[in-house]
Computed example of a mutant assay.
Amino acid sequence: MSTVLIIEQVLNGLQFGVMLFLMAAGLTLIFGVMGLINLAHGSFYMIGAFVAAAVAAATGSFLLALIAALIAAAAAGAIVEMVVIRRLYATDHLDQVLATFALILVFSEGTRWIFGSFPLFLDIPGYLSGPVTLPGGIQYPLYRLTLIGAGLAVGLGLWALIERTRVGIQIRAGENDREMIAALGVDISKLYTLVFALGAALAGLSGALVGAIQSVQVGMGEPVLILAFVVIVIGGIGSIKGAFVGALLVGLTDTLGGIFLPQLFKLFMEQSAATNAGSAVASMSIYILMSIVLIWKPTGLFGARP
């Protein structure tokens, strides 16, 4: 196995990880601040991808497509929070699961009704297409490098928002003691709407960015949502830093596992059996990682002690 292939797969894992972080960061914010299990979070990922594809096709501008995806996902999140989610805070988690699962069906059928049943395609803009030469003569797609940089920039901006602004102080305080900040005069309803819209916007941005390297189709958000839940369990519920570290671990484990595990099994089996066994174990690798982390730290890597 060549060094070039390993470096390329590491970069692929980082790109996958930072996109997962955008999903997981919004999800952990919503759960950490609001205590809400939101199965419909993947629907905002799908909305961002579909809106970006439609706007890019209509205007030819990839930047406008990203802005539209952010606005559409945030607006959808705010409306859902005010109309549906606000009635679920006092209920138990089973009611939240059932209600947000119903939202998945509503969003899926609504998206199919508006955009049709066939996949859409979002083209990579010309100024981001083609490969770039990295040190050592490695050729790597410019767009994937841009995704890594964009994800890191958004993560830094989110950290600054949470740690360095008044709104961030309110969000962190709401996570620890919502009754107290309500008593201090903070409008908890507006804060919850803001947090939910922010989480939805991050998911929508992730969907729009990834939509240029895969087909945009109904139901595309649910597999990513499962991985996002794995990320926040590994990183620790409510921790943005944990979501970032967990996303990178999941991205690298999933990508590198698919390369190295079949090669490892070839040392003990014939080629066809080794490929099948290695692929099967690779598909389970992130869940094995999650199990190991939970055995070591039941609250996740950066989760608060119960």
Rank of each mutant, 00 (worst) to 15 (best):
L161R: 02
M284C: 15
S189T: 14
A228V: 06
G13L: 11
P131D: 15
P223C: 03
P135H: 14
P125A: 13
W159D: 12
E163N: 11
L27W: 02
L64S: 13
R86L: 12
L120M: 14
T28I: 11
S272D: 12
G77L: 11
L158F: 13
L36N: 01
G42S: 01
F244I: 08
I30D: 02
L66V: 09
Q96K: 11
L63Y: 11
L36T: 07
Y89A: 10
S285M: 14
G151A: 05
I104W: 03
L261Q: 04
A280P: 01
T3R: 09
M290K: 03
V230R: 00
G236Y: 09
I292Y: 01
M269G: 01
L120Y: 01
H93R: 13
A228L: 04
G151M: 03
V245S: 09
G60M: 04
L252A: 09
G221H: 06
T146N: 02
I37L: 15
A208P: 07
L147I: 14
N176L: 11
A201Q: 03
F21G: 01
Q9L: 14
G235H: 04
V210H: 04
G204T: 11
Q96E: 07
S43C: 10
M1Y: 07
T299H: 12
I67D: 02
F101Y: 09
F244H: 02
L184K: 08
A102C: 11
S291V: 08
P306L: 13
L184F: 09
Y140D: 10
I292A: 14
V167D: 00
Q217V: 13
A274S: 14
M1R: 06
I104P: 00
M82V: 14
A102E: 06
P119R: 11
S61K: 12
F244S: 02
F21K: 01
L88M: 05
F118Y: 09
S61Q: 11
A243W: 03
V10Y: 01
R178P: 03
L145A: 10
I124N: 02
A56K: 01
G185Y: 05
V97K: 05
A243R: 06
A197H: 09
I148S: 03
G60H: 04
K190R: 15
I37M: 12
F196M: 13
V83G: 05
S2R: 04
F50T: 01
